[in-house]
Amino acid sequence: MKPLPKDPLNILVAGVGGQGNVMLAQIIGQALVMEGFFAVVGDTFGAAQRGGSVASHIRISKDTEYSSIVPKGQADFILGMEPSETLRVMGQYANPATRVIVNPRVVLPPTVISGADTYPDINEVLAAIEKHCSRSWIVNATEQAMNLGNRLYANTILMGATLGTGILPIGRDSVVEIYKERFADPKLYRANVKALDLGISLTKESC
């Protein structure tokens, strides 16, 4: 079992319904169990419609079960799939030692499109995120995924970027093994492993 810097280690995956963060959190949880940890993954709650705020909570321990929701201010790592959702989750769960990955691709709610609400300036959002954590990585996962030919690879790239930081006590091999199970089509499997490695390279070199 890899060493755990803190028990429990608290992870949040923040995004918008439809982005696939529930799936991402589930894969992290599965990898943790494979590596011998006790994992608790709080799934999506609320009306599971596309477009709503979704935060998945992952609690990691050597030996015991924690609640499925991270207590206030106790996040060790936040994986942000959307900038304003990352900031929203930080408001509730971050502390000065929290580390953050953020995908800068904005998803606008219809209320902003209609003009009834506003989306904050993206540069200000990113600056606020960077200022209020101990370490941050801006990972342009959506753009990189489009380059690979499908926006769906964004999640895999973010998964890789998370591995690259070395914060989670899981190795690349466990994730690759889970992908092998999930992607029956060998082409799809290979493409995802490629996206995973791309993600790892985005954060690893800056470590």
């Binding site: 606008l108 904050p120 959002v125």
Partner: peptide, 18 residues
């Protein structure tokens, strides 16, 4: 500070799927 900053995040009210 962070709570105030987070208030800028727009609400994401329930919406029917496209």
């Amino acid at each position: 500070e962070i709570e105030e900053l987070a208030e800028a995040a727009p609400a994401r009210p329930w919406e029917m799927c496209p």
